[in-house]
Amino acid sequence: MDVSSSDLYSVDAGEIRWDGSNWYSSERTSAISSWNGLGTIYIGPDTVYTFEDLHFSDVNRSDLTWDGLYTNYPVLTDTIQVNNYYLDKYDTIVRTGVFTHELGHALSLADIYDPDYSIYGPWPSVMYGYTDARPNGITSSDIDNYEFKW
């Protein structure tokens, strides 16, 4: 059973071209590098010769209970927003994990909610839906799901 793949994603012709800006750009770069390390889909900056598939931006909202948000629009450019209200208080590893998680959505990997660890065991996937209970980097189950999809 493929529980962590979604039909909604930002991949276009084997790549994701992104634009936008984040305060925590080095964490974003680390997250992009880790997914690019898997090889099949290239995530790279938008150029004058490409079309933007994904746009990064920041919000700063204490009333929201998310630190990252991926939106897949049918027509418009997809977006990843990170909430600096929380990222400001995280360390680099966790901040990188938030970007890695959201980029996983852009690559078609869906959220995993397994609060009693009955499906995957403890700390199974960077696609786990809750930041305080997930690994901050790509795991073997993420690689399996990525390779299954791509």
Binding site: S10, F51, T65, W66, T71, N72, P74, D111, Y130, D132
Partner: peptide, 26 residues
């Protein structure tokens, strides 16, 4: 092709995927 890219059908529900800061199902 852009209009049809990864859209199941036009004018439908667009779901946004949050990364919750903690397990709010608890």
């Amino acid at each position: 092709s852009l209009i049809n890219r990864d859209s199941s059908s036009p004018g439908k529900i667009v779901y946004i995927s949050p990364s919750y800061v903690t397990d709010v199902s608890n």
